[in-house]
Amino acid sequence: MNIKFDPNNNIIKLCIMGMGLEDSGNEEEAISMFHKAWNEATNDYEKFIAAYHLARQQKNIADKLKWMETSLQCALNINDDNVKSAYPTLYANISWCYEELQDTDNAKRNYDLSELYKGKPTDKGPFYHGTKADLKVGDLLTAGGISNYQSGLQMNHIYFTANTNGAGLAAALAKGEGRERVYIVEPTGEFENDPNVTDKKFPGNLTRSYRSKEPLRIIGEETEWRQLTTAERSKWRENLAKSKGEIIN
Rank of each mutant, 00 (worst) to 15 (best):
N110M: 03
R179V: 11
I49Q: 09
T207D: 02
N82Y: 04
M155F: 00
I3F: 06
I247E: 12
T164C: 04
S32K: 13
A62S: 14
L72Y: 09
A92S: 14
D105W: 07
G220P: 10
G168E: 06
G176V: 10
M1T: 01
M33G: 04
D134W: 02
M1V: 10
G168T: 01
M33N: 00
N9L: 08
Y159I: 08
A172G: 06
I12F: 06
E246C: 00
I158A: 00
G25A: 03
V83D: 02
K132C: 02
Q154T: 14
L173G: 02
E214P: 01
R56L: 11
I61F: 01
D80L: 03
R226M: 12
R56F: 12
D23T: 11
G176M: 09
S234V: 07
S71Q: 09
I146S: 14
K201A: 09
N239H: 04
V83T: 10
D123S: 13
S147F: 11
T42Q: 14
I12K: 05
A231G: 03
L141G: 01
I3H: 02
N196D: 11
K120L: 12
N82D: 07
N10T: 12
R233W: 05
Y149W: 14
I146L: 15
H53K: 12
N239P: 00
I218K: 03
Y128D: 02
R208Q: 15
E29G: 13
A50Y: 01
L14V: 01
A167I: 03
H129C: 07
V197Q: 09
D139H: 12
A107Q: 08
K64P: 01
N43S: 02
W67V: 01
L140D: 09
G18D: 08
H157R: 13
